[in-house]
Design a binder for these strands. Structure first.
Length: 453
RNA sequence: GUGGUUGUAGCUCAGUUGGUUAGAGCACCAGAUUGUGAUUCUGGGGGUCGUGGGUUCGAGCCCCAUCAUCCACCCCA
């Protein structure tokens, strides 16, 4: 038998890691709940047609598809062969695969809303914390299975939702102690107007992909890429003037008004930005007109959260407004806006910046030493009393040298050692030793719980 | 999907131009120590050198393939 292994980009999480991850989840959940979001879970797999075509061409390629069962059944073999031919041609085939692992939480959520819009109370505010899967090559901060934490509001056009979600970001990162994060905002309408200003709305995708890279590759390479995409010098000139907008939020707003203010869409986008920013004067938020975000379905505000520059992680969260997501599933006129947290990346950032609290790893509070068969029977009864009081404790599993029992306690980060030997039984008390300070004292059995708590 | 990096004991890593029986530190186990975490000393167990082929009298080392890893691109959280 070959050595056991797990698939590429998948991970086991040790106890220590799970505790740290749970710490992040609990903070995020707390904030979601106090802003009035309700939990939702959807299945790991969706019908393939629910997912295909929603994330662009690249996205389709990265969806994990699940092979149908029963392909070897003689009844299905003709179909399966035809289907396989189709696959080889690069088309998809229901005969071979009709289910897939979910790629994000937003599309399954839209599917859920489309299926249940009759029952839901709008605006519907839901949060969802689940795994998603992408068949991407793993690298730093990128895994094939990772967890997203989303909060969305659907059924409301009000910009107050954007304001609320920005506060959600702020509150979560504040609670996690991740102070130097950077929340950026832009509006797709402004990007769209830039494309119109260049003479063709269809240029939007190419333009956004190129300018999104500005801080990574610099202005010259962005211009080169635009040139390669077939833009002419006067178009590139417009974009360059757009990219040269810098300064405080107010400065940037007045500059964009000068450049694109005559465009109706731009006016709308600018108005929205202004509204959101004036309601967010308590927190740090930066306009970034180069912010584009990949997903095609965004139509209004877009958000992105960058990790502190010192850790080189890039995006740890993102979101935005979409006008008609459920329209993809035949239910029109349900606009929405949402944000997402990349927990796995937040974990990596917090690990690197050492932001996890020390006391997360304390599991067992007290270890009862095993001093022999009779003694441990006695100790067991006392231990069960402590457990009734909610104190996590355990009895060392066999009679061993004290040295060994101490080492076990030390490794498991256990706070107290409780030693009950024949002497102690006679005196109706136990030795309670604090393993971090090294102090020990005799404690009557009936006071043990109180001392340990 | 494209390009590169790495893979030797539980962990971190040495290992010469291809040449006897593959090493170290840490960890683990036993003892010195029959009720208090240390230190020290003595002894011990552990490896199909990622996997599968090939070249060679001979491969941890060279070649091919494959899997995993990390990194960059694409894209993205």
């Amino acid at each position: 038998m070959s050595k056991p292994s797990i698939p590429q980009g998948m991970r086991d999480f040790s106890s220590e890691t799970v505790r740290k991850r749970n710490y992040i989840f609990s903070k995020i959940k707390e904030v979601f709940e106090i802003y009035g979001f309700q939990p939702l879970e959807t299945p790991a797999m969706e019908n393939l047609e629910t997912l295909m075509g929603k994330y662009g061409e690249e996205g389709d390629r990265l969806i994990f598809k699940i092979l149908n069962n029963g392909l070897n059944d003689p009844k299905n073999q003709e179909k399966a062969k035809d289907g396989f031919e189709k696959l080889l041609e690069g088309k998809s085939s229901k005969a071979i695969t009709e289910r897939a692992l979910k790629y994000d939480l937003t599309i399954p959520f839209a599917r859920y809303v489309a299926m249940n819009h009759g029952q839901l109370t709008f605006p519907y505010k839901r949060y969802q914390i689940q795994q998603v899967w992408r068949a991407d090559r793993p690298q730093k901060g990128r895994y094939r299975e990772f967890t997203q934490c989303d909060a969305d509001v659907v059924g409301s056009n009000a910009l107050i939702n954007e304001v609320e979600l920005a506060y959600v970001y702020h509150d979560v990162f504040t609670r996690l102690g991740l102070k130097e994060y950077c929340l950026k905002i832009n509006n797709r309408k402004i990007l769209a107007s830039l494309a119109i200003e260049c003479g063709d709305i269809d240029l939007l995708t190419n333009i956004t992909i190129a300018i999104d890279k500005l801080d990574k590759i610099g202005i010259d390479k962005v211009k080169l890429e635009l040139e390669q995409k077939g833009l002419n010098p006067s178009q590139i000139n417009v974009i360059e003037r757009y990219l040269n907008i810098i300064g405080s939020n107010d400065d940037q707003l007045s500059q964009i008004e000068t450049l694109l203010g005559s465009n109706e869409q731009a006016q709308e986008g600018i108005k929205e930005l202004k509204y959101i920013l004036t309601h967010l004067n308590q927190i740090n938020i930066e306009i970034d007109f180069t912010l584009a975000r990949g997903l095609d379905y965004y139509t209004g505000s877009i958000f992105e959260v960058k990790a502190p520059a010192s850790v080189q992680m890039g995006s740890i969260g993102g979101g935005g407004r979409y006008d008609n997501l459920t329209g993809l599933f035949g239910v029109p006129n349900i606009p929405g806006v949402g944000v997402s947290f990349g927990v796995d990346r937040i974990y990596d950032v917090m690990e690197e910046m050492q932001l996890f609290p020390q006391d997360l790893q304390i599991s067992t509070k007290a270890l009862f030493f095993n001093m022999g068969e009779k003694e441990s029977e006695y100790a067991y009864k006392i231990m069960q009393e402590l457990r009734k009081d909610g104190i996590a404790c355990e009895l060392y599993h066999e009679l061993s040298k004290l040295d060994k029992q101490f080492k076990y306690a030390e490794k498991k980060n256990i706070t107290y050692a409780v030693i009950i030997g024949s002497k102690e039984i006679e005196q109706n008390c136990a030795i309670l030793k604090n393993l971090s300070s090294g102090n020990q004292e005799n404690i009557p059995f009936n006071q043990l719980a109180e001392k340990i708590k």
